[in-house]
Design a protein around this nucleic acid. Structure first.
Length: 866
RNA sequence: GCCUGCUUGGUGGAAUCGGUAGACACAACAGACUUAAAAUCUGUCGACUUCGGUCGUGCCAGUUCGAGUCUGGCAGCAGGCACCA
């Protein structure tokens, strides 16, 4: 049996001791390959999702290295974040200690997997050597006006006691705590990601698949496009009919609304403003009932389900405005719960005939519904499509909708009542967190000078370690000395900002720091320019908008700050599927671990102790709460790293969900044993001493090449191709076929030079998946130190890989009736003669006349008869 | 509601350009070896069949000599977005 434990330990020790995976020096960026997996949060345990992620990256890294690329393949830790603080509160462990302990134990699980990381470049984002640099970025962004402080309604997570970015609110709930988010008015720091909205959107085109570059998955591009949510329209001014009704608290002569459908202005029947709109506030001062209404609106829960069922509510302010296109028409102004202050101008005009929402509202408040578009056929209102002709619209009549839109825009611009305007759904990135375990925001609040950045030479602003977690809230806030300092400008007593940065800040640039992890400067431009962009970035699709949008934004900002000269950090993005497992419930509905359950012959499940019936729930993502988890450490101990690596890359394409099945892992383990047995047989059968690299096949003419050599080259071609297309599961399937071919060939007739080359191909094509085995077997068979040979890929002889005989399918009227064996590039006549002689073909052509014959060289002959 | 994917045996999945559907595995079944078990090896494994074949890639049409693959329509599943004006 294959002694995987000692073998794997032996080679891991050597790789580490000899720095086998050290990043090579790079003189130019030619032939470089940067392979990166999304860095893990040090939660304490490596789970199967991590394993899948890192195996994909490692196979790619090893393959590219073998192909002759200079590979950068680093790993690190996304080490700031809430769980560390929660542990501090619950168990009294300092966040730093907790994090460091977790990093150590997770690394202990990673090392036995045999991943080819350059550990000399390891980063932990919680170290001041790391976060000090991002404080500098923050200050430079501040000075460039990309950072600002704003008081506004924010998403507040009542459990984590912190502000959340819009991206972190999922279904109206905090992405971490899972409790409903509440609105809270707070001062917080924001980054002007909206300044980059257009670039973030336009560059998505470049991330598409291109020749030689796989690009980003369409799904992710679409998600980012939707998230940015560009819409083109116009701002339009609606003058107040009687300014005195508005009162002195509102300072504009008109209400400005944003619309994407200016062509429907002739169908307007009301205007509505958000409850946070200044006009609403102004009116509420004189109207107690309105004040009450606004209060109620704010209390409306913001959860998705509540929003979709919530009825549209409006309050008529009594103010009336003039329709700018139709000055004799006046419209009522409502405060309405469905208008959002954060989007557009916080004010809309309603055209009920052509908008679902306006339609509902108009019906409820008995407002007129005037159609202005006549669709091609009889449709019911509201008619929201844009094909049709304009009606009841004065100078827009008879125009197509899109023409009318352009004309309406021209009109409002010419008459000074509005202009074209582009709006985005994307909002600025709120980065303040009222937490301890994060990067301190390097700002000092001076009573005289206001917010003043810390001097660059005073960086990093280091987190204090003597903090107490016995009270709720931010420990930095109540630390006796940390926040007290002097203003860098005027020297007066001042306090530090006690908010820390969102942890997505750290992960927005770590991939750059790997190029120069020990540099004194934040980034070594030369190194960054050589290695970036990341060629293959591998991670979960759950980061499609959060992390991946921030990282792109950050790269653009750093370009504008002069740190680098490219805009897009990741050329190809590979999003791996989840690792799933059946989950089990006992009769009481309690979740059970797979180890507590056993399968019976009839396919049903019972508990291991007591044999109680167990319900198997459909396979779903492995999670602690459902207990459907498999511990990678345990699997490595039982089956070995190579078997686990091969297994997790087998059978399922990398981007699809993977169904865990321990029995199938057993199959991979058996394959390892088979490989080892075959290696032993070959090492006894052949003496490969006197040369390692095959030198034979380049000399031999293809017609003299033994069949097995041709087979090996055919599979080398298939496996290489599969790897280049990220079809890892196919590469393994092909290798299994190759193994079977080798097993079935007789060794006696095989010249040693041919055997050498076959063995070389056989071992090196599985090496990216099973590197420990490959080393051990190479050493055994070639009797040399294999380390230098693992980073080479066998040279393909295309002429040997060519099939020289082909099986040609013979069809009659498109139905398969037989096959003909022939030599490559055989002519039609030969095939046709052979085909017509086939019994199965004759039966269907006999007595009929041949109308047509289609011949596809080397593939097929189709005889059409009538 | 909108957007994006996906749908092939009992299961995971193969099938470059439209050209032999089911590679490679898992499970199952049968057999060999064995005192026995494990391990290993061999075989069967889409449905129907009068054993000649016929049908079969979610459903209905179309293009084609030929469709899992292309086009149109429909259904189901998954994911994303959503009072976004």
């Amino acid at each position: 049996m294959y002694a995987f434990r000692s073998v794997e330990e032996k080679w891991q020790k050597r790789w580490l001791a000899e720095h086998s995976d050290k990043t090579p020096e790079l003189s130019t960026s030619k032939q470089k390959c940067y392979v990166l997996e999304m860095l893990p949060y040090p939660s304490g345990k490596i789970h199967m999702g991590h394993v899948r992620n890192y195996c994909i990256g490692d196979v790619l890294a090893r393959f590219k290295k073998a192909q002759g690329y200079k590979v950068l393949h680093p790993q690190g830790w996304d080490a700031f974040g809430l769980p560390a603080e929660n542990a501090a509160v619950q168990n009294g462990i300092a966040p730093k200690t907790w994090t460091e302990r977790n990093i150590a134990s997770m690394k202990d699980t990673l090392l036995p997997l045999g991943l080819s990381y350059d550990w000399d470049r390891e980063i932990a984002t919680c170290s001041p050597e790391y976060y000090g640099h991002e404080q500098r970025f923050f200050i430079e962004m501040f000075e460039k006006g990309l950072v600002y402080q704003k008081e506004s309604w924010v998403n507040w997570d009542p459990v984590d006691c912190t502000v959340l970015a819009n991206e972190q609110v999922v279904d109206g709930k905090g992405w971490r705590s899972g409790v409903p988010v509440v609105k809270k008015l707070m001062k917080h720091w924001c980054l002007r990601i909206t300044d980059y909205a257009e670039k973030l959107l336009n560059n998505l085109e470049r991330l598409r698949e291109q020749p030689g570059i796989a690009g980003w998955p369409e799904k992710v591009l679409t998600m980012q496009r939707n998230w940015i949510g560009k819409s083109e329209g116009a701002l339009v001014r609606f003058e107040f009919v009687d300014i005195s009704t508005v009162g002195n608290d509102y300072h504009d002569q008109a209400l400005v609304v944003f619309t994407t459908r200016p062509e429907t202005l002739f169908g307007a029947s009301f205007c509505a403003v958000a409850c946070d709109h200044p006009l609403a506030a102004a009116c509420a001062k004189r109207d107690h009932e309105l004040e009450q209404f606004i209060d109620d609106c704010r209390k409306t829960p913001v959860t998705e389900s509540a929003l979709s069922t919530a009825e549209k509510q409006g309050y008529d302010t009594g103010i009336r405005v003039k329709n700018p296109l139709k000055p004799d028409q006046t419209l009522p102004v409502f405060v309405a719960n469905f208008v959002l202050m954060e989007y557009g101008t916080g004010a809309v005009f309603g055209c009920p005939a052509h908008d679902e929402r306006d339609f509902d509202f108009a019906k409820k408040y008995a407002l007129p519904i005037t159609p202005v578009i006549e669709g091609p056929t009889e449709e019911r209102l509201p008619y929201v499509a844009t094909n049709g002709k304009m009606i009841h619209s004065d100078f827009l009549n008879d125009l197509a909708v899109l023409e009318a839109r352009a004309k309406a825009c021209d009109w409002v611009e010419q008459h000074g009542v509005g202009h074209r305007k582009v709006t985005y759904r994307l909002r600025d990135w709120a980065v303040s967190r009222q937490r301890y375990w994060g990067c301190p925001i390097p700002i000092i609040c001076c009573p005289k000078c206001g917010a003043v950045p810390v001097q660059i030479e005073d960086l990093p602003v280091v987190l204090p370690e003597d903090v107490d977690f016995n009270e709720p809230g931010n420990p930095l806030e109540r630390h006796p000395s940390w926040k007290h300092t002097k203003c860098p400008q005027c020297e007066s007593e001042a306090v530090r900002e006690t908010d820390t940065l969102d942890t997505f800040f750290e992960s927005s640039w770590y991939f750059l720091r790997y190029c120069c992890p020990k540099d004194k400067e934040p980034l070594n431009k030369e190194a960054v320019e050589k290695w970036l962009p990341v060629d293959f970035y591998i991670g979960g699709v759950e980061h499609a908008v959060l992390h991946l949008l921030y990282a792109r934004f950050f790269t653009m900002v750093l370009k504008d700050l002069g740190y680098l000269s490219f805009e897009e950090p990741f050329s190809t993005l590979l999003t791996q599927g989840m690792v799933c497992h059946t989950s089990f419930q006992d009769e009481k509905g309690q979740w059970l671990y797979p180890s507590e359950v056993e399968r019976q012959n009839d396919g049903s499940y019972v508990t291991t102790d007591g044999k109680h019936p167990v319900m198997a729930v459909r396979s779903e993502k492995m999670s602690k709460s459902k207990k459907n988890i498999i511990d990678p450490e345990q699997m490595v101990k039982t089956y070995g790293a190579d078997a686990l690596r091969i297994f997790i890359m087998s059978d399922t394409p990398y981007d699809k969900d993977f169904d865990w099945n321990t029995e199938a892992l057993d199959g991979s383990w058996k394959y390892m044993n088979k490989l080892w047995r075959l290696s032993e047989i070959w090492s006894r059968a052949f003496d490969f001493s006197g040369g390692v690299r095959p030198s034979y096949s380049s000399a031999i003419p293809s017609e003299d090449a033994p069949e097995l050599l041709k087979t090996a080259h055919r599979y080398l071609k298939k496996i290489t191709r599969a790897l280049e297309q990220f079809a890892f599961h196919k590469a393994i399937a092909f290798h299994r076929e190759l193994t079977r071919e080798i097993e079935n060939s007789s060794l006696e007739v095989l010249p040693v030079e041919v055997a050498r080359e076959v063995a070389y191909i056989w071992l090196l094509t599985i090496a990216p998946f099973a590197p420990h085995f490959a080393c051990e077997a190479f050493e055994l068979m070639f009797r040399v130190d294999p380390l230098g040979f693992m980073s080479s890929w066998p040279l393909l002889r295309e002429d040997l890989a060519q099939e020289e005989s082909v099986t040609i399918a013979v069809q009659v009227n498109g139905k398969l009736r037989g096959t003909v064996e022939a030599t490559l590039d055989v002519d039609q006549e030969t095939v046709q003669t052979a085909a017509l002689a086939l019994e199965g073909v004759y039966k269907f052509t006999n007595g009929k006349s041949v109308k047509r014959v289609i011949f596809v060289p080397n593939k097929l002959l189709n005889i059409v008869v009538v």
